[in-house]
């Protein structure tokens, strides 16, 4: 077995690789897969075909990938929702978020940003928190849906600052962002595409949910700096294979992906997305996946979200 695996790994990849994206084209996971697959394919010497298998918040495609043959020819674009959040939302999952997969490489993480409409009375996160404390249940925060990163980071902020806000769910972050720009909502902890509106002067960015400041928005403070500790929300993107993917194949893909992450083109585009490059070993990625899964147990519980 081991020998066969080794032989397989030495010739890997000898045919095109499929990368399963458990979401529809156009979203963050799909964009990430398309961004990384091309340079990665060039280095591996075989084309990588992105395959969108959307459904049930990423569960359909993720389950499908877990059942693929662990030969390195079917990879999955893993991300926060299916691996760290959905296990708490759905009572029956067709996969184990950790055990069904072989972590290969963590690519990058993207923070959320506390944004308010340009006409908002709030000019800092503290002002917003102070107002929310004096007026419980008055502020509306938007999200792209129950269990989305905008929803969960809103819950984190409510817990950390001990405030009470009303959650307004939308079908996707796009419509929620429109409502915020139009001033129908008070705030949103939105993903970096919202920075477009900050640049255009339609939104104000008040804080960022990463542990350190983001190079794309160096003037925006972290919640830690503002004295509201515990608001950490970073959407992660990483490549995983089905459980039992041979070590040699994991190492090969990990090595090439790390090399891609160091290229100037990717670095430049990552900065535009306000993302942070991660990379590192498969072991580090596994530890990261386990700790994220643990961390979101309480957050999802507090949010009260449940899909079934």
């Amino acid at each position: 077995m081991a020998l066969a695996g080794l032989a397989q790994a030495q010739t890997y990849p000898s045919k095109p690789i499929r990368m399963i994206v458990p979401f529809a084209p156009g979203g963050g996971v799909d964009t990430t897969a398309r961004m990384i697959s091309q340079p990665l394919a060039e280095r591996l010497g075989q084309p990588i075909a992105v395959e969108n298998r959307a459904g049930a918040g990423g569960n359909v495609g993720t389950e499908l990938a877990a059942r693929e043959k662990p030969d390195g020819y079917a990879l999955l674009m893993g991300s926060l929702s299916p691996h760290s959040v959905n296990p708490y939302l759905y009572s029956r999952l067709g996969f184990d978020p950790i055990k069904s997969f072989t972590p290969i490489v963590l690519l990058w993480t993207v923070p959320n940003i506390l944004v308010v409409p340009a006409a908002s009375r709030f000019n800092s996160a503290q002002e917003l928190v102070a107002y929310a404390k004096a007026n419980p249940g008055k502020l509306n925060f938007g999200s792209g849906g129950v269990g989305s990163s905008q929803h969960l980071s809103g819950v984190m902020l409510s817990t950390a600052a001990k405030i009470d806000m009303v959650h307004v769910a939308f079908k996707g972050a796009g419509p929620a962002g429109t409502a915020l720009v139009a001033g129908h909502l008070d705030l949103m902890l939105d993903t970096p595409p919202a920075l477009v509106h900050v640049a255009a002067g339609r939104l104000k960015a008040l804080a960022v949910t990463s542990k350190s400041r983001n190079p794309a928005i160096p003037n925006v403070p972290t919640f830690d700096e503002l004295g509201i500790p515990g608001v950490y929300m970073e959407v992660w993107y990483g490549i995983v294979g089905p459980a039992g993917t041979p070590r040699e194949i994991v190492n090969r893909v990990n090595k090439e992906a790390n090399a891609v992450l160091q290229t100037p083109e990717i670095k430049k585009r990552i900065l535009e997305f306000a993302a942070q490059i991660r990379g590192g070993t498969p072991e580090e990625f596994e530890q990261f996946m386990i700790s994220e899964l643990k961390r979101f147990a309480d957050v999802v519980k507090t949010s009260g979200a449940k899909a079934e």
Partner: peptide, 14 residues
């Protein structure tokens, strides 16, 4: 959309 609950899905993820 409001609650995130699946309605009439009869345990079919699709």
């Amino acid at each position: 959309v409001e609650s995130g609950m699946a309605r009439f899905s009869f345990e079919a993820p699709e």
